[in-house]
Simulated assay, not measured.
Amino acid sequence: MNRITNRFLLNTQRLSVNLVTYPKGHSVRRHNDPVADGSYYKLNFVVTKPAEGGVFETDRAIFSLFNRVVLFRPDLYDHSVSTIKRGKRVLLSIALHAPWGSADQQ
C-alpha cells in the first residue's frame, strides 16, 4: 500500500496546517483525538476528492459544505474515512487546540 504524505505547512503549539495526501487503498478507522486540556477543532478542505470511496464521516459536524469543507470537534466525536477505491484524497487540514473549554465540560 502507498504511504500517506503529510506536509506540515505550519505547526505551533495551538495551530497546525497540513496538506495530507491519502493514496488508493487507504482508510481511517473510526476514532477520536482526545486532548488533555482545552478543546480541539479541525477545519478540513477536501482539495482532491477520490473517484470512488474516501468518504469522511463524523458523529457530529459543526459545519459541513457538501462534505468538502468540514468543521468538527475531533476530541468529542468519532470520525473516519472509508477506503479509497479509486484515485486519491488530498486534504488541507487546519487544526486549533484552543485553551478554552474541555471535553468533560461539553
Rank of each mutant, 00 (worst) to 15 (best):
Q13G: 14
Q13M: 12
R89H: 06
V46N: 00
V35P: 00
K42I: 09
N11W: 10
F63R: 10
I4C: 14
Q13N: 14
F8Q: 15
F45W: 08
S27C: 13
H79S: 02
W100D: 07
V46G: 00
S82E: 02
P34W: 09
N11Q: 10
L15H: 09
S64F: 02
G54Q: 03
R73H: 03
V55F: 10
L71W: 04
V70S: 02
T21N: 05
D78T: 15
V81S: 04
L71V: 15
G38C: 06
H97S: 13
A95G: 12
G53H: 01
V81H: 03
Y22I: 00
P23K: 10
D37R: 15
A36M: 10
H26G: 10
S102K: 06
K85P: 01
M1C: 15
V35D: 00
F8K: 15
R86S: 11
S102M: 07
Q105N: 14
R89S: 00
Q106W: 15
S80Y: 02
L9Y: 06
L76A: 03
V90G: 02
R14T: 12
F56H: 02
R29S: 15
S93N: 13
T5R: 08
T83D: 03
V55A: 05
G87S: 11
R86V: 04
T58A: 03
P74G: 05
V90Q: 12
N18E: 12
A51D: 12
